[in-house]
Design a protein around this nucleic acid. Structure first.
Lengths: 239, 239
DNA sequence: CGTGCTGTTGAACACATTCAACCAGGGTGG
DNA sequence: CCACCCTGGTTGAATGTGTTCAACAGCACG
């Protein structure tokens, strides 16, 4: 595994296995040599490649090693983005209950992802309390995150939503060890607007306004956070 | 258990144990006589009684038998409602990861709730694959629900949000066997507005407007759905 | 009968959208 | 090589949705 991940870590945002969302179970599994059966080798996906389509039979989770994915559904013929996923994130927890994928998953950039078979993970949950606790912890964290997001996105106005979004990006990378204040957006303005329930014009306007306030520096897909605490304050969150 | 639940079912919205969110594991446990150790007796809470406060140590889930609860956090001195919980719902899944309650839980009306100890549930997860699968299914369903809610509440305008909220109420009751089109709101307008990120004035105006359209009939806390499919259409959801 | 609480209604205002024009960069073809 | 177009992004003016502030109605309670 290291032979694949090592050269990539310098290239772009990626997570070493220890910082992955399932890291704490993956590493022990590697030591026990049961890894190969449960966590398949990393697979590479090209930009705009579709990993799975809404309605496909659910078999495996995807855990992002590097790159970025988005998930969306088609409502009334238009794409509605459900979420963005960054290195260390796991996709598919919502599919346990439906036995099929509820969203289409698409690569925003070239992406490396680990595949984790559901059945085999479940078998491990029963065998190892460590795996059990890790998975429950992961799902609980997911639920907590969604709660916070609902709170955020139902209460906040456009400016606060966008600030919260950039805070979220920063926090996601920071959680996995990338504390840089310079962020390269892997999604276009239209995707951000779609996800936040805004228009691209509003997103654009707010980005320039926030830049004028000296909080951000925006150039195309590159965003530099000039005043992190002001950004978090704008998002109405505590750091 | 039945001695408690039976007389209540006629009185108001309540769920028989078979329709509870954990029903499928609860019933077998009752048969195995392990029930008493895991699922404590129902506890009654008065209107406005606080079950737990944000930050309290997490020990048990609450599963609503009858009545209604709300969860909220205090942000900048003001209450921010996180969610409403109805008969059959389980509260506390977000606390597994934090080991403490992330919200304050308060009874909206007189409420009967079952208490389910976390530690003892986990022990059962390892012992019984049926319990394991039920709990994973429950958590996955939770995650899926939140995904849909985020989509809903970030994309929809005020009218659609409120329609979606009433649809959600209807669906929640319907899932547990109460398909009546007459719904008694257990929360006040201020709570609805707070939760949906609107003002009470807007909620009020939209309710009367929707009534004028012949979709709803509103009188105080009593709502009667006159045209279910129109309501779902307004909420931009499929039935 | 007044007081307080919950909910409704009205008018002025603010924020976000819509529609439109415009700009910058990348690729293609003459 | 430059004109051309196409895509992604920014900016401006008019419109509309939802908020704010205020008054008021209905109802329970002392």
């Amino acid at each position: 595994m290291q032979d694949i991940s090592k050269p990539l870590r310098s290239k772009s945002y990626s997570v070493p296995c220890e910082l992955c969302s399932i890291g704490s179970i993956c590493i022990p599994m590697a030591l026990n040599n049961t890894l190969e059966s449960v966590l398949n080798r990393k697979r590479s996906f090209a930009k705009n490649e579709i990993l799975v389509t809404e309605g496909d039979e659910f078999q495996r989770f995807y855990i992002i090693h590097s790159g970025a994915l988005k998930t969306y559904v088609i409502i009334n013929g238009t794409e509605q983005i459900n979420g963005f996923y960054l290195p260390g994130d796991i996709i598919g927890l919502d599919s346990i209950t439906t036995h099929k994928y509820n969203n289409t998953i698409k690569a925003l950039t070239t992406t490396l992802a680990c595949e984790l078979k559901y059945d085999e993970l479940m078998a491990l949950v029963t065998k190892s309390t460590q795996v059990r606790d890790t998975i429950f912890n992961l799902m609980s964290q997911n639920i907590l995150n969604y709660q916070k997001m609902i709170l955020a996105y139902s209460q906040k106005n456009a400016e606060e939503k966008l600030a919260a979004f950039i805070c979220w990006l920063y926090t996601q990378y920071a959680k996995r060890g990338h504390t840089s204040l310079s962020i390269k957006l892997s999604m276009c303005r239209a995707d951000i607007a779609n996800y936040l329930g805004l228009t691209i014009e509003t997103v654009s306007r707010i980005l320039t306004r926030t830049q004028e306030l000296g909080i951000l520096s925006v150039r195309g897909k590159y965003i530099c956070i000039k005043d992190l605490s002001a950004l978090f304050q704008l998002a109405a969150e505590k750091i």
